[in-house]
Simulated scan of single mutants.
Amino acid sequence: MAYVYVNLLVENPDTMAAYREKAGAALQKHGATVLVSAPSQTVIEGRRDETGIGVLLEFADVDAAKAWINDPELQETHALRRSAGKSAITLLG
Rank of each mutant, 00 (worst) to 15 (best):
D71Y: 11
L35S: 10
A67V: 03
L80I: 00
A38Q: 06
T77F: 00
Q41F: 05
I69A: 13
F59D: 02
G24L: 07
S40M: 12
E50W: 05
I89C: 06
V10P: 01
Q41P: 01
A88I: 08
L91H: 05
L56K: 05
T42N: 12
E50N: 10
L57R: 01
N70R: 06
W68D: 00
I69L: 13
A88T: 15
R47S: 08
A38S: 15
P39M: 07
W68T: 00
A38C: 14
A88S: 11
N12V: 02
S40L: 10
N7Q: 04
L35N: 13
Q28H: 14
V43M: 06
I53D: 06
L92K: 06
Y19G: 00
S40I: 02
I89A: 07
W68F: 11
E11K: 07
G24E: 05
A79M: 07
D71A: 14
T42P: 07
R81K: 15
V34D: 03
D61N: 15
R47Q: 11
E58P: 04
V4Y: 01
G31V: 01
A60R: 11
L74Y: 13
A23G: 10
H78Y: 04
Y3T: 10
E58F: 02
K86Y: 03
W68K: 00
S83P: 05
A64K: 06
D14R: 07
S87N: 14
K86E: 05
G52F: 08
R20M: 15
K86Q: 09
G52M: 08
I44D: 01
W68M: 00
S40E: 08
T51I: 06
P39R: 08
T90M: 14
L57N: 02
K29I: 13
A23N: 11
A84F: 02
M1H: 12
E50M: 09
A88C: 10
V36T: 14
E50P: 02
E21P: 04
L27P: 00
V10K: 02
T33S: 14
G46A: 10
E58M: 09
I44L: 12
V34W: 02
I89K: 05
P13F: 08
L27R: 00
A18T: 00
D71F: 10
V4P: 06
I44A: 09
H78F: 03
